[in-house]
Design a protein around this nucleic acid. Sequence first.
DNA 1: CGCATCCCCTGCCTGC
DNA 2: TGCAGGCAGGGGATGC
Length: 293
Amino acid sequence: MPELPEVETVRRGLEPAMAGVRIKAAEVRRADLRFPFPDRFASRLEGRTVTGLSRRAKYLLADLDDGAVLVMHLGMSGAFRVETEDEVRMPGAFHHARSKAAAHDHVVLHLSGGATVTYNDPRRFGFMTLIPRAELEDHRFFRDLGVEPVGNRLDAAYLAEALEGRFMPLKAALLDQKIIAGLGNIYVCEALNRARLSPRREAGTIVTARGRASVRAERLVTAVRDVIAEAIEAGGSSLRDYTRADGSLGYFQHRFRVYDREGEPCPTQGCRGIVSRIVQSGRSTFFCPVCQR
DNA sequence: CGCATCCCCTGCCTGC
DNA sequence: TGCAGGCAGGGGATGC
């Protein structure tokens, strides 16, 4: 279910359970998710201490005390479930199922202190792998990633330079992880509505003839930053739900302006448009044809 | 190189 | 009630 704000919410949910904690045992219940697990994956995790949990774009990164990084991606349907000792209360019996294993529980980490962290992913578009810390930046997953949407490096000048001369639809440009890393279908739709820019506009047209950032670029950057920051805030407020056994993240607690709102009134102040749905590169786009130009 | 299309997989919703 | 079809938040591979 995750775009960047959800991944950040997951990170915040996992951090108290995992940071500084040793992995006593790892159960890996199938040979692959999206990709095969690396050789000896489970045994390479066992005995390691997690020294920190961070995030880059939609990747979760658990630093291990042997210099490797456990890289985790949730794909479309990945979720973690944390069960603490209190909830399980089966001391000395971590190899027994404590809460029932749910369908699609693929990886279970048994942590020192008694908690378990379970990765569940019905569609299996997610993956986990191990990469040496020193090689992370040059790894194919990371080397081409663009800037974080909430961070100092995203500004109108950056966006103008990235989009200058590009003819692809603005929506496609925003989904391009090489430009801004971590935006997904929902928040791109949301940001474009806030910025009152059409998803169909040629990306290069938010740049002035001299290659400078335009007012449109400024509006877009502000919208991207705001929508992501607010969503992280909203996700953070649902952290309590996260640790519950059902693993729900409160994702739909977040009210979207246009996403999945075909036929509803555009929320832009003073706009009388109706949200419409189109398909761009095979995926749904929701936008207001009246105020988004 | 830039861009579009297809595909991996399961689950859920809709309509017949 | 069953079943087929469409759709889903990601992103990599392929091909023009």
